[in-house]
Structures are given as structure tokens and as C-alpha cells.
């Protein structure tokens, strides 16, 4: 049985029933138990399909920006990176924050390659009902580098415990109203201990970024060029990215920047997206998960946003009022991050 889905389902059902929201956006079961698909729900009956497993095949933030009606009230089940993505999208005026009701789920990582029904906790994991020590190698690479397990920017935040309890924290006034409609008793949760996660994130950032930063400049260039040699310009990375919400994208052939029909595309293709997304990357990993050629793109973007963020003292996705230092990223900043290709 899907862990704690009942509590989350109950909160969402209540919100739909009381017309607090018009629509619910979450992940749910598809053709089979292991098939997880995004769901846009307006009918209470479909709430049963919602799952809370540690497997998220796409960025709900992006899907809301792409298919949602910004004038409708929407409840969205979010992990931290989804919530941060939505904050960045709101800054770009693609969603109206007042219309969003965010039901957060604390997230200690999701798996990229599914092995069954998986739940990830701070130091253990459950696979098809069996508890075992956490295998960090099973986590999506961006998740290993993630230091934000708790979706503090969501209106409420649910913590799923290994034993099966669901502890709910209210973060905003809106959150109070959301919980008022729930018919299950909700407990107030003590703050989560995120020290272990911060340690893990630091360790993996050091490994992933350090490996690249320690390369000689020429070697580093060769590394990225050889990765981009495989690019087939599917635009999958852009289409998965919650930051890339432009109606007209500079990467398209009619914009005159990147030649159409050339594979691999010029390195500029990646450099342009990098400068555009740069400081706002929320490390959701969706670009890399979408890349058919296994190019470690999210490593590159995360690294850049970290570097630039430390220069400008900017952390994307946390605060809606702090605007990204857009257009402040120039070649010199790129150089500092070690992404000094072409």
C-alpha cells in the first residue's frame, strides 16, 4: 500500500470538495502499479490514484507552467525542487503565486532507475515493502547533491516516516486553510533534522564538481566537448527545465543563433542555455533525466548556479522577492565555474 498516500490524498480531496482549489496536480498510477504519470485532477474520484513514492518522472513545476491555467486555483504536490522551480517560474510571471496551494513532501532523494515501489528516507530506503540501508548510488545524481530536503516554501509540508506516519507542518496562513478541510487528524511535526542531508550534499558536490574543477583547463574543455559531441539537439533538456519557460527560445533555428539541422549542434547551443538558466538552476535534475545521450547536464548547471550564486549571494527558488542576477552572468563568471568551453 502506498505509504502515507492516504493522508496526502485526504488533504487534497478535502480541498477539491470544499472548492478551495479547482484542480489538483500530482503523480499517480498509470497503466500498472509501477507506471507513474503526472495527473491533473478535477474529480475527487481520481484522487485515489495519487502516489507518494520516491520516483518523480518529470518536474510538476514545469508541467504546471506549460499546461496549467494560471487563473485557476491549483493544489500541487511538490518536492523541494518542484517548489523552488515554481518560485522561479513565478518570478518569470508564468504562474500566479496566489493561485497556487503547495502541498510539500519532504524529499531525501528520488531514484532515477526504478526497481519497484521505492521510498527514500534520510538514511534508509524501502523497496517493495522491505526496509534496507540507503544505497546512495541508487539516487538520482542531482538528489545526492541536494541540500534542501524540506520544502519550506510550500504552504504545508508532509514528512513521511519510515514507520509509516505522516507528520504535517504548516508553513503559511494558506496552509492553515488547506488543513482545515482535511478529515484526518494531522499531527504537528517537530522540525526535521537535515544535518545528515547537508553533509551528503556537500560530499557529492565536492565529488561531482571537484572532479571537473581539478582538471587542467584544456582537459576540462575536452571533457565537456566530448560530452556535447553526443548531443542530438532533441531540446529535451530545455523542455524539461522549469527555468526554460520562454515562449520564443533563442535556441530555435529561426532565431538565427543556432544553425538548424546540424548534429551535434554548435557548443553555443549549450553555452546559451547555460547563461540563460545559469544562476537560477534549482538542481531538479530533469534536464539530465531527459537527455537521451546521457550527458551530465544538470551537473553543469548546478555547478554554475552554485558558483554564480556564491558570487552574488543568490540562492534560486527560496525567496520569491529575491530576483535572479540575470544578465549579470558573463564570460568571466563562466570561467570561474570551470565551464570555459568555446
Amino acid at each position: 500500500m502506498a505509504k502515507c498516500a492516504e493522508v496526502v490524498q485526504d488533504i487534497l480531496r478535502g480541498m477539491l470538495r470544499e472548492r478551495l482549489v479547482d484542480e489538483v496536480v500530482a503523480f499517480g498510477r498509470g497503466l500498472t502499479g509501477s507506471d507513474i504519470l503526472p495527473l491533473f485532477i478535477t474529480d475527487e474520484q481520481d484522487i485515489d490514484r495519487i502516489v507518494t513514492t520516491s520516483y518523480c518522472p518529470s518536474s510538476l513545476a514545469k508541467l504546471v507552467a506549460r499546461y496549467g491555467d494560471r487563473n485557476k486555483k491549483m493544489a500541487i504536490v511538490v518536492r523541494s525542487c518542484d517548489a523552488r522551480g515554481l518560485v522561479e517560474i513565478a518570478k518569470r510571471r508564468q504562474v500566479k503565486p496566489e493561485n497556487l496551494y503547495l502541498v510539500g513532501i519532504e524529499c531525501y532523494g528520488v531514484v532515477r532507475e526504478k526497481r519497484g515501489e521505492v521510498y527514500i528516507f534520510a538514511d534508509k530506503m524501502e523497496v517493495d515493502g522491505e526496509m534496507m540501508p540507503l544505497d546512495e548510488a541508487a539516487l538520482s545524481p542531482n538528489c545526492r547533491r541536494c541540500e534542501y530536503p524540506v520544502p519550506t516554501m510550500a504552504d504545508i509540508s508532509c514528512r513521511i516516516e519510515p514507520e509509516g506516519d505522516c507528520l504535517v507542518t504548516v508553513n503559511t496562513e494558506k496552509g492553515k486553510a488547506m488543513l482545515a478541510t482535511a478529515s484526518v487528524p494531522v499531527q504537528d511535526a517537530p522540525p526535521s533534522d537535515v544535518a545528515a542531508i547537508k553533509e551528503r550534499a556537500a560530499r557529492w558536490q565536492e565529488k561531482d564538481f571537484g572532479d571537473i574543477k581539478r582538471m587542467e583547463p584544456g582537459e576540462r574543455l575536452d571533457y565537456w566537448l566530448s560530452q556535447f559531441d553526443r548531443c542530438i539537439k532533441c531540446y529535451g533538456c530545455r523542455d524539461a527545465c522549469p527555468i526554460c519557460v520562454c515562449k520564443e527560445c533563442c535556441l530555435e533555428p529561426d532565431r538565427g543563433l543556432i544553425k538548424g539541422g546540424e548534429y551535434p549542434p554548435e557548443t553555443l547551443f549549450h553555452a546559451v542555455r547555460l547563461t540563460h538558466v545559469g544562476e537560477s538552476c534549482v538542481n531538479c535534475g530533469q534536464c539530465e533525466a531527459a537527455c537521451p545521450m546521457e550527458i551530465p547536464v544538470s551537473k553543469l548547471y548546478h555547478m554554475l548556479s552554485k558558483e554564480v550564486g556564491s558570487i552574488f549571494n543568490y540562492e534560486p527558488g527560496l525567496d520569491i522577492d529575491s530576483l535572479p542576477p540575470v544578465s549579470m552572468v558573463d564570460e568571466e563568471d563562466l570561467l570561474k565555474t570551470g565551464v570555459d568551453f568555446g
Binding site: 498509470g30 500498472t32 509501477s34 507513474i36 518522472p57 518529470s58 526504478k114 542530438i232 532533441c234 537521451p292
Partner: peptide, 13 residues
């Protein structure tokens, strides 16, 4: 479509 065994959440243009 992530669960699909051939494409696993990736596609070409």
C-alpha cells in the same frame, strides 16, 4: 514516458 522500457523518459526531436 518514463516507465517505457525502450525510451525510459527520453525521446528524440
Amino acid at each position: 514516458w518514463s516507465e517505457h522500457p525502450v525510451s525510459e523518459g527520453k525521446l528524440c526531436i
